[in-house]
């Protein structure tokens, strides 16, 4: 059973390699050196690489932001959310409508985008979070479809064609219109998302989510308000999606309902689960897989989703904690 599988056996070479890696990075100096080296490399990458590479990397950063948001809902709070693209759409369309219809500056639309996502999160979360977990999955899926269909049918959202002419953001007098601009913008967003995720994970709030995930009744008996905690996860996660959506709209300058389909929610979900839900490096790894694999081999094309689906199945069956390795020693030390 599951219990036995998790029992550590420090015998295989792979595990000892992983353990020595973990040991290596236990050292703060090494860890920060590695982090600085990686960030430094990513900072100078645009001047070294082609437009195409920058485009892919921007997309990767974008995925990291969105998926870390979804990770708060799925990985931290254990709620299966199948309509996450809807929250991303809420952000993108808030910015899109305000910018293209009313000419409001991009930065001013951001708070509205977050507020809209929080309201949408409350509207869907408040009545449903007391339901059984699998009902929540269906409700979020239905909500995702309602959002997409509504966007498609309304005039203010531009119907099936969508919105065009969304203004580029201006940052200290520079109009952000180069791919390298967006590269840096999404890079900063991704760093922020990682930062916020780390802080939340190791906190009173993060622990509350973990208690609830482990045993809802015991958590309630310990004085944790289950519904409110989940609602927090829902709102914070949705806000991540909305912010990413706003920046997405600004980058594309045109958005249409086709960018917010169920399949996008599924891609985000896959990125979160493949690497290892709840683990920040795991989610980043998942994003790398989901974004880079189709780019490495263009021939994959139509098989892309099929391959991911098989990977997802195999991961769930044999390694539900995802590809990112667990530290093998935690329970072996005693």
């Amino acid at each position: 059973m599951a219990e036995n599988k998790k029992k550590p056996k420090l015998t295989t070479p792979l595990e000892s390699i992983i353990e020595s890696l973990f040991r290596f990075f236990d050292n703060k100096v090494y860890r920060y050196t590695a982090l600085f080296a990686a960030s430094g490399f990513l900072l100078i990458l645009p001047s070294l690489s082609s437009r195409f590479t920058q485009e892919i990397m921007t997309n990767l950063f974008f995925y990291v932001v969105v998926c870390l948001g979804l990770n708060i809902i799925i990985g931290y709070a254990g709620l299966l959310h199948l309509g996450y693209a809807a929250f991303f759409a809420v952000g993108a369309y808030t910015t899109g409508i305000m910018s293209s219809r009313f000419g409001i500056d991009f930065w001013l639309t951001l708070p509205f985008s977050v507020v809209a996502a929080v309201l949408a999160g409350l509207a869907i979360g408040f009545p449903t979070l007391r339901l059984r977990g699998d009902y929540l999955a269906i409700v979020t899926l239905g909500f995702g479809e309602i959002t997409r269909l509504t966007i498609r049918n309304l005039d203010i959202t531009g119907g099936a064609v969508g919105l065009i002419g969304i203004q580029r953001p201006v940052f200290f007098g520079i109009t952000l219109n180069q791919i390298s601009h967006f590269y840096y913008m999404f890079f900063i967003l991704a760093i922020l998302a990682i930062f916020v995720s780390y802080r939340l994970h190791d906190s009173r709030m993060g622990r509350a989510w973990e208690y609830i995930r482990e045993d809802e009744d015991a958590a309630a008996a310990m004085g944790i308000n289950v519904t409110t905690s989940r609602l927090y996860a829902f709102i914070i996660g949705s806000s991540f999606g909305a912010v990413a959506g706003s920046f997405f709209a600004a980058k594309m300058t045109a958005i249409s309902p086709d960018s917010f389909m169920f399949i996008h929610s599924v891609m985000f979900l896959m990125a979160v689960v493949l690497g290892g839900m709840g683990k920040i490096p795991g989610v980043v790894l998942g994003c790398i897989i989901v974004v880079l694999i189709p780019e490495i081999s263009r021939d994959i094309g139509q098989y892309r989703l099929l391959i991911f689906a098989f990977m997802l199945l195999i991961i769930m069956l044999y390694r539900p904690q995802g590809i990112w390795p667990d530290r093998p020693t935690i329970s072996a030390k005693e």
Binding site: S203, R204, R207, A208, Y211, M222, G223, I224
Partner: peptide
């Protein structure tokens, strides 16, 4: 630490 949740408020 779960027990302290209701006595704190961050």
């Amino acid at each position: 630490m779960s027990g302290m949740h209701c006595r704190t408020n961050a």
